[in-house]
Design a protein around this nucleic acid. Sequence first.
DNA 1: CCATGCGTTGGACCAAAGGCCAATTCGCAA
DNA 2: TTGCGAATTGGCCTTTGGTCCAACGCATGG
Lengths: 210, 210
Amino acid sequence: MSQESPIAYVVDDDASVRKALHRLLTAAGLRAVAFDSSRAFLDGYDPAGSGCIVLDIHMPGLSGLELQDVLVTADSDLPIIFLTGYGDVPTSVRAMKRGAADFLTKPVGETELLTAIHAAFERNRQWRQARAEVAEIRRRLKLLTPREQEVMRHILTGKLNKQVAAALGTVEKTVKVHRARVMGKMQVRSLAELARLAERAGIEPASPGE
Amino acid sequence: MSQESPIAYVVDDDASVRKALHRLLTAAGLRAVAFDSSRAFLDGYDPAGSGCIVLDIHMPGLSGLELQDVLVTADSDLPIIFLTGYGDVPTSVRAMKRGAADFLTKPVGETELLTAIHAAFERNRQWRQARAEVAEIRRRLKLLTPREQEVMRHILTGKLNKQVAAALGTVEKTVKVHRARVMGKMQVRSLAELARLAERAGIEPASPGE
DNA sequence: CCATGCGTTGGACCAAAGGCCAATTCGCAA
DNA sequence: TTGCGAATTGGCCTTTGGTCCAACGCATGG
C-alpha cells in the first residue's frame, strides 16, 4: 500500500501562470507538477496516482474542455478544477455538467484555490477508495471459473442448491462443490457477505427462471 | 399508482416571462404551472409530485439560489433549471455544485429549454424511482419490532443463529422465530434478497463483536 | 503416453435452518 | 381485571447447507 500523497497537476500554457501556481501550491505543502499543454499532461501524468488537475481552458492544441472529455472517456478519477481568465456561463455549466470539481476565474485568491484543491483531493480519495473496493471484488471474480460464476449468480437470486442444479442441468452435489469454491475464492464466509459484495460490484443475479 | 405526468414549474417575477414560458411549455405538450415568487412556489407546489423547476435567479424575496437552498435542505427531488438574464460564472458554478440540473441564460432558445426540461424530467424520474424503492424498504423496516431489527442486523453480518443468540443474550430458538418474522415482514424469501435490500437502503449490519 | 489441473459426481455425516404446535412472561390499553 | 401484542422458550421433525474422502472424464502440455 504505497500511500503516496496526492499530486496537484497544473496544466496551463502560460509559463508565468504555471510558475506562480507551482510556487503557491508547493509553498502550501502540496506536491505540484506543471505541464504546458494537455498533450504534455497526458504523456506525463500518472493515471494510477491520486490528486487533481488545475486546468486552463484556452490552450493551443487540446483545450481544457477537450482534455476533460478525454479524461472522462478514459474513466479517469482525477477531479478537474478549471481555472480560466475568460470564462463564460455556458462554458462553466458545460464543464460542471461533465463532472468538473470546480470552475474558478483568474485572478483567483490563494485561499479559494487551495480550498478547491483540498476539496478535490477529498473527492478523489473517496472515489479511489470506492473504485478500489470494486476492483478488488472484480479481481476475485476473475478467479472463478465460468461454471462457478454461473452458480454464484443463481445463488444470489436466493435459489436452493437443488434449484440451481435444475437450472444448470446438473445435480445438487455439484452445485454444493461450486458453491463452496465460490465462497472461498470470494473470501466470504456467509451468503450475506457475498450478496453485499455482489450488490456493490454491480453483479446482477441470474434471472429467476433460467 | 397515480402515474401523473410531470409538471414544469415556472418561477419568475416577470409576468411577461412567465406568460411566454407558460405558453411555450404548454404548446410543447407539457403541464406547466407558473409562480411569481419563491414563496408562492413553496406554498403552491406539490412536494410529492414529479417534474422540474424553471427558476429565475433575481427575484424579490427569496432569490432563486435561496429557493434552491431551501429545496435542497428539504430534500426535494425536483431538478432545478436556472434561467437568468444576468448570470455570471461564480453564480452558475455555485448553482451547479448544489445540484442544479442546468443553468441557462436569457434569451433562451425553445429547443434548448425544452431539451433541458426533458432531461430534468428524466433525472427526476430516475431519482424518484430510486427513492421510492428505498422508501418501500424503510416502510417494511418499520414493521419490524426493535428486537427483530436487532436480529436482522446480526443476521446480515453472516452470523449463525446460535451466534446471534449469544450476542443478544438469548437462545437459538428465539432467534429462529425472530428471523422468520423478519423474512416475512421484509417480504423476502432468502438471505440473499434480504442482504440486497439492506445494502440498497443503507442498513448497516451489526458490528461482528457485539 | 502420461502427469497435472479442472470440472464433475457420489456417499456419508453433521450442523444449521425452517416449519408447526404449544406455552410463559410482561407491559400496556380497554 | 381482562385482553392483546411483543418477546421469549421448548420440543419435534424435515429440509438444506457444509465438509471430508473418493473417483471419473477431459484437455493441455511434457
